[in-house]
């Protein structure tokens, strides 16, 4: 049975509509701890103008955000704060790990610097650089928008689940030179 559709009506899927709304209104949560934060500010400012991509509304309350941008190194006293803020953000939410320090620890391979936030929270997009140019961060947001548009579902089924998730590298010990491995707790990843 053919239904007459007027010219100004488009047919789409509900998932596509939700993704289109979500990707064009990402509200970033700036978790800026180091010099990457300066580039993050420059990205939001008038010269690079993140508003062109609908992501200019930086909110300092995690309740209002759906994109966490971790810009800078995270030390072991800051990580519980980061995890708490991530837990406070509403679904659907995404995370960009901006710069070498947030992604890998960078040059700070010392006892108190977390060697990549993706060991402890989910990360959707990594931005290389030390610090990255604003253009790189904009490209990451464009790529993230593309990911959301292509793979997103209205119920969030695209997000990784415990079954699909690869074993986290945090559960694998880094070798320490000439030292026996020592953990504060026996179970991996238990808060003490």
């Amino acid at each position: 049975m053919a239904i007459e559709v007027p010219e100004n009506v488009l047919v789409s899927r509900l998932d596509q509509l939700a993704n289109w709304c979500r990707k064009n209104s990402l509200w970033p949560m700036p978790f800026a701890t180091a010099c990457c934060g300066i580039e993050l500010m420059a990205t939001g400012a008038s010269r690079h103008d993140l508003a062109r991509f609908g992501a200019e509304v930086m909110r300092f309350s995690p309740r209002q955000c759906d994109l966490m941008i971790v810009a800078g190194r995270v030390v072991m006293k800051m990580l519980p704060v980061l995890q708490r803020i991530w837990e406070q953000m509403h679904e659907p939410k995404w995370c960009i790990s901006m710069g070498a320090c947030a992604s890998t620890g960078g040059v700070f391979d010392t006892y108190c610097v977390v060697q990549g936030i993706d060991r402890f929270i989910p990360v959707d997009m990594y931005v290389p650089g030390c610090p990255p140019r604003p253009e790189q961060l904009i490209q990451a947001i464009i790529d993230l928008q593309d990911v959301i548009q292509r793979g997103g579902t209205i119920r969030g089924a695209e997000f990784e689940t415990r079954q699909r998730q690869q074993p986290k590298r945090a559960l694998v010990e880094l070798p320490v030179l000439n030292q026996p491995l020592h953990r504060l707790t026996t179970g991996g990843g238990q808060r003490i």
């Binding site: 519980p80 010392t110 006892y111 989910p122 990784e160």
Partner: peptide
Amino acid sequence: PLRKDYPLQGRGERHNFPVLTRESA
């Protein structure tokens, strides 16, 4: 950690956090 017999990369303290997944958050 500023004792000279403490290794620069620590003794695993920086790995000792809960791992958050999409499901758990």
